[in-house]
Design a protein around this nucleic acid. Structure first.
Lengths: 219, 219
DNA sequence: GAAAGTACGTGGTTATTACCACCAAATGAA
DNA sequence: TTCATTTGGTGGTAATAACCACGTACTTTC
C-alpha cells in the first residue's frame, strides 16, 4: 500500500507518514479491485472492516424481499463506507454496497479498535473509545429510523421495516419489539391509519400477522 | 465527586476507580443542581461540555420562533445528553435541555478530547479519535434531518427547517444552501407541493422569499 | 441574441393519510 | 367473576400531499 493514496483521507488525519504506515499494518489494510456491478458487501453480511474508496465509486443500495431496489447514496473516491458496521463488528448490514464502476477498495479492520485500545490505554483513550462506541450505536439507530421513514406511503414504510427485520432475523416469521402505537410512532404515521394499511396488506396477500408476530408471505 | 455515582455509566466503562478519578479531573467534572423547569442548555448555545444525569431527569425540547413547543426525548438517571455538541464544541444547539424535575447534572468537558489526544498518542489513538469526529459529525447530520422530516405536514417541516437556520444564523433573513428540488428532497416531500406550500405560507404572512433567500416575518 | 435547458410556480385530479368516533377483544386488578 | 383499562381495528370525513401537465422566467451556450 502506498501512503500517498490515503494521506488525505480523514481517517489518517494528523498522522505522520510513519504512523500511517504503522496504522495500515495495524488495521490489516488490504486492497481489492472490483468490477462495475460487483458486490462489495451484501445485506445480511457482518463485517469487521470498513471500506475506503481508492479509485472509482460505489453505491449503497437496498434491495428488499419484494424486489424493490432503492439507491441510498454514492461514495466517491476518498470516501468511505460501512465504518459503523465495521466498528461495531457484529451488526448485520441492511444494505448492499455495489461497485458503481471499476473500483479499488481498501479494507481496514476497525473492529476491536476500541476494545483493543481499552486494555492498554490511559483514561483518555478509554473515554474516547467509549464515546466512539456510543456514537456509532446512535448512528446506527438514527440511520435505521431515517431509512424506514423516508418512503412516502405507510405501506412502503412497513415493508422497509419488515424487510430489515427479515434480513436480521433471517426468517419470514418476524417478531417485532413494538406494539401498534409504538410502531406507528417509529414509522411516523398515525396508529389507526397503520392498522388499516396492515389490514390491506394482509388482504393483498403480502403479509399475515397476529399481535406483534408478522409473517412475510411467499409471492 | 464520588466515583460510585458514575462507575456504572457507559462513558467510564472499563476504567479502574483510579482511572475514573483521573478522568473526572481531566474532564473537569463539575456538578450542578437544577430545579424543575430550569434550563440546562438553550437553543443557540454552544457547549464544550456534555451532561450526565446523576439524579432526576431532563427533557430535550424544541421551541420555535412561532411559539410551538415539542418534546423530543427524555433522559433518565445515568443517561447523558449533548455529547455530540460537546465533542464538536462549536456546533450551535438547536434544542433546549430542561430539568424535568429537581436534578443533579455532572458536566464533563469533552471538547478537544479528540484533538488533545491527537498530539501525543499513537496511530491507534489518532485513528479512534478521527473516527469519533467523523461519527459525531454524521450523527449531527442524521439527527438534524430526522428532526426536520418528523413533522407530518410540509408546512411544519419547512418551519422546523427554517427555525433551525434562524437559530444558527441568528437572523430572520435566511440563506438556504438548497435549491427547491434539493430542499424538497431534504424534507422528503414533492417539489411542486413544496412550492405550493411556500406560496401559501407567504400568503399567510409567515415568510417571504426570493429564490434561496427567506425571511421570517414578524408576527 | 436565438435556442436550449434549467428552475420555479400553478391548476387540477387523485391517492393517501390524519383525525374522530366508536367497537371488540384482550388484559389485569379487586 | 366483574369491572376497568389497554390494545387493536373499522368506518367515515376532511385535510393534505403526490402526481401530471403546463407556463414563465431566468441561464447557459454557441
Amino acid at each position: 500500500m502506498d501512503v500517498n493514496k490515503v494521506r488525505n483521507t480523514v481517517i489518517f488525519n494528523g498522522m505522520t507518514d510513519g504512523e500511517i504506515e504503522a496504522a495500515l499494518k495495524g488495521l490489516k489494510a488490504s486492497e481489492k479491485k472490483y468490477e462495475k456491478g460487483e458486490a462489495i458487501f451484501l445485506a445480511g453480511d457482518t463485517t469487521s472492516r470498513m471500506g475506503l474508496v481508492l479509485s472509482g465509486s460505489v453505491t449503497i443500495e437496498s434491495n428488499d424481499v419484494w424486489g424493490n431496489r432503492m439507491i441510498l447514496s454514492h461514495v466517491e473516491e476518498g470516501g468511505f463506507f460501512a465504518e459503523t458496521y465495521g466498528l461495531l463488528g457484529d451488526e448485520i448490514m441492511l444494505v448492499d454496497v455495489i461497485a458503481n464502476e471499476d473500483s479499488e477498495i481498501l479494507f481496514l479492520t476497525v473492529k476491536n479498535l476500541t476494545s483493543k485500545v481499552s486494555d492498554e490505554g490511559t483514561w483518555v483513550i478509554k473515554a474516547v473509545s467509549n464515546l466512539l462506541s456510543i456514537s456509532a450505536q446512535k448512528n446506527l439507530m438514527l440511520s435505521g429510523r431515517s431509512f424506514h421513514t423516508s418512503p412516502k406511503t405507510i405501506r412502503d414504510r412497513v415493508m422497509s421495516y419488515l424487510n430489515s427485520l427479515y434480513i436480521k432475523q433471517k426468517s419470514r416469521e418476524i417478531v417485532i419489539p413494538f406494539d401498534r402505537q409504538q410502531l406507528a410512532d417509529y414509522l411516523n404515521v398515525e396508529r389507526t391509519a397503520l392498522s388499516k394499511e396492515l389490514g390491506k396488506m394482509r388482504d393483498d396477500g403480502l403479509i399475515s400477522f397476529k399481535k406483534n408476530r408478522f409473517t412475510i408471505e411467499e409471492t
